[in-house]
């Protein structure tokens, strides 16, 4: 029995990864907004909207689950999971904008390292030969990442 394959698996994979990172970031920021520790308008707003935010974060979790399952069906775990580290960068930068949290030099270094690391991982083949559930692209295109 053959498994139906998506027409453009790489595009779907990267769309899924983008969504996974966006959802990760949103969930993190929702959570931070609902813990009123520092100043910033987003914190104050979050503190007054805890109940709807909680419901929103539940919905986001369900969406994350579905999306993550799709992403895992398309590529190696050791390919996709490190790439989700981009959400740490998005959260750090968003926290700076929304919650007035300053970024120190160590964090800038960390951001740069994560970026380089993600680029390195993304340029490895996304599917291992032993896991051939989704038919790979025509020969040669897989090696170019």
């Amino acid at each position: 029995m053959s498994i139906p394959t998506p027409k453009r698996p790489r595009l779907l994979l990267w769309m899924g990864l983008f969504l996974a990172i966006s959802l990760d970031t949103s969930v993190q920021l929702c959570w931070r907004a609902s813990v009123p520790q520092h100043g910033g308008m987003a914190h104050a707003l979050g503190a007054t909207l805890i109940k709807p935010l909680f419901l929103l974060s539940l919905l986001l979790h369900v969406w994350q689950l579905f999306n993550w399952m799709m992403v895992l069906a398309l590529a190696d775990l050791s390919f996709v999971q490190p790439i989700t580290a981009l959400s740490y960068i998005a959260v750090a930068i968003s926290s700076h904008w929304l919650f007035s949290e300053n970024l120190d030099p160590l964090q800038f270094c960390g951001i740069a390292m994560v970026l380089v690391g993600v680029i390195l991982v993304s340029r490895t083949p996304s599917v291992s030969p032993t896991i051939t559930d989704i038919q790979p692209q025509p020969e040669g295109s897989e090696a170019t990442g």
Binding site: L77, F79, A92, L106, V114, G117, L120, T124, S128, T130
Partner: peptide, 25 residues
């Protein structure tokens, strides 16, 4: 899972790990 882990992938993951620690500190 027996996934194919190239040295480049290991290096990328190591950099990400260190980078995430630095962002968090």
């Amino acid at each position: 899972l027996k996934e194919r882990m190239t040295p480049q992938r290991w290096l990328g993951i190591l950099l990400i790990l260190i980078g995430v620690v630095m962002i968090g500190m």
